[in-house]
Design a protein around this nucleic acid. Sequence first.
RNA 1: GCGGGUGUAGCUCAGUUGGUUAGAGCGCCAGUUUGUGGCACUGGAGGCCGUGGGUUCAAUUCCCAUCACUCGCCCCA
Length: 418
Amino acid sequence: MTALQPIRGTHDLLPLEFRKHALVIDTARKVATSYGYREMATPIMEFKDVFKRTLGDVSDIVTKEMYEIADRGDEPIVLRPEGTAGVARAVMSNGLTQSLPLKYFYEGPMFRYERPQKGRLRQLHQIGIELFGVSDPVGDVEVLSIAYDILKKLGLIQYITLEINTLGDKESRQTYRDQLVAYLKDHHAHLSPDSQLRLERNPLRILDTKDEGDKKILKEAPPLTESLNQHSREMFEKVKNGLNVLQIPFKLNPHLVRGLDYYCHTAFEFTTTELGSQGTVLAGGRYDGLVETMGGPSIAGIGWAGGIDRLAMMLKDEDLSPLPPPLAIIPMDEAFDMHGLVLAKLLQDAGYIAEMTYGGGLGKRLKKANKINARYGFILGAEEVASHSVTLKDLESGEQTLLPQKQIVDVLKGKGVL
RNA sequence: GCGGGUGUAGCUCAGUUGGUUAGAGCGCCAGUUUGUGGCACUGGAGGCCGUGGGUUCAAUUCCCAUCACUCGCCCCA
């Protein structure tokens, strides 16, 4: 039986759920396109180095969450755990650093070897936006605006809060890191075990702790804002101003720290309380140093990734537009099935959704027509076939009329059916 | 990776203080209705009670392990 289960942390997307995914993707694609962002796709597999170099050697994603694939070559290959590094790699591979700015939208599966939970899968699906070559904060604002529009169009924005913070540039970040570490070292013994570990590996993440004891210690800690240099402060001011101008509400969260190494300056998260502990639904920030760490020129970058699975989970069945009712093709006997298929094709070519009913006589097939929610049925019996006609039945009123097959498209149009 | 909970029919869930053939509702199939559906009535199929092992005369029930889901932590979208 275990062989019949999907692999842990993966899911089948049956039509109902698939439509929610599709709605998220279609909405995002439409909005991104309206901002001039172009859709692209990178391979699902990459050399391990692409992520190792960029995400930071100590991040969980690199140290323990990547699916490594056995390959015949020597270079280790992995299933991509996130999208940005691959897109940055593609920019360099294709020599696109000469044609800035670059504006991209992408969508697809990512893979992380984690313990599955609600909203946390091993195969997860993301939409994402990347903007390369714009160091001005107007880029930050634009990218945030795209995210906001998408969430709004999905009807989810009322359940979602935008939190933002700045990490400052490299210099500010380093200064602050030193200060924070110095302070926390004095309190080392009182920190939670998790945070003690983070102090070595990624001290900034301690700011985001959920431990009450840690939180108390952090209250007295030097605030990040004081370590920001002039430039970093100005950047952040402009971002906040821009959001105000566009009337995008946000909450400052000085404890917001992105996990991935490549982030600097603006960091943001769209969060919800609807999904339990997996509250982040879309997140990102600025990553000016990313391309350079991969061995390319120094190019500014900013972007975000959104969790399709999480967003889709927030959608209700009613958020989906109802499927148009199909036309049911009803041969009265298997002998007329082929005639039915021919008739169906006629309707399909005219732009209608025509669904065949299979097996059984008239009564059984009418039942099947009801089940697929058809509004009209096209009955084909010996009489109809002999006279190249068809009986059109209104499945709501029961009213039916015999008409020549040639006329059916016109008749449907006359009834206003499309 | 760490800690807690759950696992009975396609779905939602009863139940068995360890003891013959494990139930309901919905859904599915068929019949009443062999050129007329929705409603109704009648009947039927479908479960190695997640999987493997142990204890016992006897296990779906108790114990252990395992798998999956789930809640929290870690991490992240």
